[in-house]
Design a binder for these strands. Structure first.
Length: 932
RNA sequence: GCGGAAGUCGCCCAGCCCGGUCAAAGGCGUAGGGCUUAGGACCCUAUCUCUUAGGAGUUCGUGGGUUCGAAUCCCACCUUCCGCACCA
């Protein structure tokens, strides 16, 4: 099957018909957007998932009659492309082979990649081609990149207005930093892509003569239990004036303090061994403590000097034990914790059998006590002001009162910049940030979220949590592609901050693209008019932009991967709430999971990346789209199985093969025909409801698979009666299926539609309506037939008989009357045996059950174990003439399939043949069966 | 730690939102049969236990609870995976 020809044929038609170009008209609109791609590589199957889901949504909405705007842009902002250009310049073999071997980028293109813009432009074109080839219904007239002059005007407007509202501030902010480059480093900038995470220590100053001995700690509240200070005897410490006071610190610490913005002036050195024996006064004014030697005191951690709290810190207890001798300080217990004894550190060391201070398990002991005491501990009376507080409170109080007013920040592990330099933590004190911690702002955002639909619903609760912990966030950085802050050209608006309200820009982009408005005209005042309706329009074009904005805004649906929930999607909500009036706040967010390949994340190093264009070229657009959508429901991570693609392709091909001009039917529908139409009606209903909830896989399964098995049964039934399935019914089903398939597999569906002679394209036809009322009788009657077939088959299987004659005893009229009464009772909620019996005995037609309560018992059990739908069907249908149905419908089928003579009798009719006394067991929907 | 997701019949995985059609779809594996010179591919049948009449029993991480009825709802616990900020 050559899908590529069909893909190309329909893509050309759509383009010719400008099917996806959207402009305001009288219809109701839907504005559907997806997070635009970052063009630092071609897209792979994983990227394709989000876009495919959004495209299906857009196409579905078009079929529902909406004027759908589905645009696309490209996110150039940020540093990764910059880093990539640098690595290509350096001839990094990993990057080069990735481009060449995985993505097949030609060498002459790679040669230009030393220029980051060339990289972005190349992949932008590549991604756009791919999106067209897979059939996304995008209005390309609105395409832009985030470094286009017009977009820059837009971002400038955005940050200016945010600043006007007092939401952009300036402050100090710690970052991972490369001293050689003089730049902040993020994960993308480090060797091995290590995230530069850091720990914040409090610094407490012990006094020793005129000098200060600073110690760094995570537990300032334990200072009351400090019995000594540890110095490493083999380390040469530095004596330095820090912020004007003379401190003793390790050389490493001195270097860190400089980056943290402290004023450090070296004055000399002192060996650790020389410090031993000195005495130091703790900051809370307690009795002086001695300095003692310990080799675990690491000059690279903290200040290189350690406060010793032997009762609660296993390292400290162990170092004292290692020291030995008589005149050592006694541990002071300052925290009582349920489940821990007097001296938790000693107990932990003894339990783990720790030998000396070099034992690695001390880490384990430390974190265990740390956690237990923090959550369950209370300060004892030995703690001065802190006595009686819970540890968590005491920590804050101690920090407030006893530690220096800044924190010592330190990288958790060694991080190296790609340039090879060892990174440090630096505090930038002129960092621009967005104040996402602002309470009033958060309240607006929460209100926006509350009114918004989030699909799947399960993920909605995640957003308020994110809002809760959100605080200031740096919104500008010093390098990368993007837009400079209008008031401070040294800074570039950071990539997550310049992409929060850009959906509004799609409206404008069309006018810029068509040359109707120049970037220079997009002044802050003009944009105020377009987006906020402030002031008079400076030109007719600006006025039209305003009209178009009013038509398309707000965003009706925002699609994105779930990894963007804690950042982009939340910022999207926050920024809309900050800048736009309530009626322009977004209405829906749709979140999808990621894509796995053979159970693993796609990554270059694993070599399991499948480029989207390659997959489409090999399998065709629709099979790839379907495989992506079928592999998982929205929120689940989709484990792509490329092995399933040929099967999907075959199924589409078979469906296509069945599309022809069709023929007329005999007119009056038979029982199985009525059933088939009822199944179709219910499938349309179910698929529509699935679509509304973006449960695309569910919808697709209904259209592709569920109907198929219904059709099989229907054909079997038709043929058992010695006739061909009614072609007019077949066609009605097929038309509905093709239409419902269209959002998912648009090329194949249009091809099928053409072969059906449907007129126009499937994509431009309306989504099918269920039509008509429920036909409970058809559903129930067919249920009787299939249920009885199953019962016969089951009997044959357990007995191993090959039957020559099967006699079926249908329930008689009085049994059916009782059954209806039981159904009614169950529907009314009075489904207990007692009240059911009482009701039956009161009815003239049903009083006979007095002699056979077992019948009622069984019927009741069966009724209760049917689905609500089946119960409603049976109740609505009223008593069925089961003997007639079984004779006309079941008998031919059973005869054909079991190769036996079939006789249908009505139980209770006079003189019937009943050699084994089976007839008495007949119940409605459960006829008695005799196999001979 | 905080937040989120998940644990299903040998394996993978559907079902859970909306309780009953659920001994629980589908795929893989396994067994038997068909086809074939053979292998593969393909097709059919079986695949929790018991059962020569459509049945019964025990199952959906563990333990409770709600209900006439729980894989599905509620509570607790155990285990695994993911995110936690200046980065797209």
């Amino acid at each position: 099957m050559n899908w590529r020809d069909i893909d190309a044929k329909w893509q050309a038609r759509w383009e010719e018909g400008r099917d996806f170009e959207a402009e305001p008209d009288r219809r109701e609109k839907k504005f559907i957007t997806v997070a635009y791609p970052y063009p630092n590589s071609p897209q792979h199957l994983g990227h394709g998932r989000t876009y495919t889901i959004a495209d299906v949504h857009a196409r579905y909405c078009r079929m529902r009659g909406y004027n759908v705007l589905f645009p696309m842009g490209f996110h150039y902002t940020g540093t990764p492309i910059l880093g990539m250009a640098r690595r290509i310049k350096d001839g990094d073999p990993e990057v080069l082979s990735g481009l060449r071997d995985i993505f097949g980028v030609p060498d002459d293109a790679i040669a230009t990649f030393v220029d980051p813009m060339k990289i972005a432009d190349y992949f932008r074109a590549e991604i756009r081609r791919g999106m067209i080839e897979i059939g996304y219904s995008i209005d390309w007239r609105r395409e832009f990149t985030t470094v286009d002059p017009a977009y820059r005007r837009f971002v400038e407007w955005q940050v200016l207005r945010l600043r006007d509202r007092g939401l952009i501030g300036r402050g100090s902010h710690p970052v991972g930093w490369c001293p050689a480059d003089g730049n902040p480093v993020s994960q993308h900038d480090t060797m091995g892509d290590v995230e530069p995470s850091f720990t914040e220590y409090d610094v407490m100053l012990f006094k020793s003569g005129g000098r200060r001995i600073p110690v760094a700690t995570l537990r300032p509240e334990t200072v009351h239990g400090a019995t000594n200070i540890w110095a490493n005897p083999d380390v040469e410490y530095e004596v330095a004036a820090v912020d004007g006071e003379e401190w003793i610190i390790s050389k490493e610490c001195a270097a860190k303090l400089v980056h943290l913005g402290r004023d450090v002036e070296p004055r000399g050195t002192v060996r650790g061994s020389e410090l031993v024996g000195a005495s130091a006064e703790p900051p809370h004014g307690g009795p002086p403590v001695p300095v003692l030697p310990a080799r675990f005191a690491d000059p690279g951690t903290g200040t290189g000097l350690v406060m010793s709290v032997p009762a609660h810190a296993p390292y400290d207890w162990q170092a004292l034990a290692d020291l030995g001798g008589d005149d050592l300080p006694e541990p002071v217990t300052i925290i009582e914790t349920e489940g821990l004894g007097d001296c938790p550190a000693r107990e932990a060391c003894e339990r783990l059998g720790i030998k000396d201070q070099d034992d690695r398990r001390l880490e384990e002991a430390t974190s265990e006590i740390y956690g237990k005491e923090f959550y369950g501990g209370r300060m004892t009376g030995a703690c001065g002001d802190l006595a009686g507080m819970r540890v968590a409170e005491a920590r804050d109080a101690a920090r407030e009162g006893l530690a220096v007013p800044w924190r010592l920040l330190e990288l958790d592990a060694e991080v190296k910049c790609r340039c090879g330099e060892r990174c440090v933590v630096r505090v930038l004190d002129d960092q621009w940030f967005l104040n996402y911690g602002d309470d009033a702002w958060k309240r607006d955002a929460a209100s926006c979220l509350g009114a918004m639909e989030v699909l799947p619903p399960a993920i909605k609760q995640e957003f308020p949590r994110v809002l809760e912990w959100l605080r200031e966030r740096a919104c500008a950085r010093q390098r990368g592609l993007g837009t400079p802050l209008p008031w401070d050209g040294d800074w570039i608006v950071e990539s997550l901050s310049d992409s929060v309200i850009y959906m509004a820009f799609y409206v404008v982009a069309r006018f810029v693209g068509a040359g109707e408005v120049s970037p220079d005209e997009l002044t802050p005042g003009a944009l105020d008019h377009v987006f906020l309706g402030i002031g008079d329009p400076p030109s007719p074009a600006i006025s039209r932009m305003r009209d178009e904005f009013l038509y398309y805004y707000p965003v009706d649906s925002r699609h994105s991967g779930r990894d963007l929930v804690p950042n982009h999607l939340t910022f999207f909500v926050m920024n809309h709430a900050a800048l736009f009036p309530r009626e322009h706040w977004p209405r829906q967010i749709v979140v999808n999971g990621s894509v796995l390949m053979d159970g693993k994340k796609m990554s270059k190093s694993m070599g399991n990346i499948v480029p989207l264009r390659a997959a489409v070229a090999e399998h065709g657009a629709d099979p790839v789209r379907l495989a992506t959508l079928l592999s998982a429901e929205l929120l689940q991570d989709a484990d792509m199985d490329m092995g399933a693609v040929p099967g999907i392709s075959k199924r589409l091909e078979a469906l296509l093969g069945s599309c022809g001009p069709g023929g007329a039917g005999p007119g009056a529908p038979a029982a199985e025909d009525r059933w088939m139409l009822e199944r179709l009606r219910r499938t349309v209903l179910a698929a529509t409801s699935s679509m509304e909830g973006m449960r695309l896989r569910e919808a697709l399964r209904a259209v592709l698979f569920d109907i198929e098995s219904d059709l099989q049964w229907w054909r079997r039934r038709s043929r058992s009666k010695g006739k061909e399935p009614d072609p007019s019914i077949e066609r009605r089903v097929l038309e509905a299926r093709v239409l419902m398939l269209s959002p998912f597999a648009p090329h194949a569906a249009d091809e099928m539609w053409e072969r059906l002679g449907g007129g126009g394209t499937a994509a431009r036809s309306p989504w099918p309506e269920p039509g008509g009322a429920a036909d409970g009788a058809a559903a129930s009657s067919e249920g009787l037939v299939s249920g009885t077939m199953e019962d016969i088959a089951r009997i044959l299987r357990t007995t191993g008989m090959s039957p020559s004659r099967i006699t079926i005893y249908a329930a008689g009229a009085r049994a059916r009357a009782a059954y209806q009464a039981i159904l009614g009772a169950a529907a009314g909620g009075g489904a207990d045996m007692k009240s059911v019996m009482r009701g039956l005995l009161a009815g003239a037609e049903t009083a006979w059950v007095k002699k056979d309560p077992g019948f009622v018992q069984k019927c009741l059990k069966e009724v209760l174990s049917e689905t609500a739908e089946a119960r409603a069907d049976r109740l609505a249908a009223g008593p069925l003439d089961e003997a007639a149905i079984l004779r006309d419908e079941l008998a031919p089928l059973a005869r054909a399939e079991f190769g036996a003579e079939i006789e249908v009798l009505e139980a209770g009719a006079p003189g019937i043949r009943d050699p084994r006394g089976k007839a008495a067991h007949a119940r409605p929907f459960k006829p008695a069966i005799l196999v001979e």
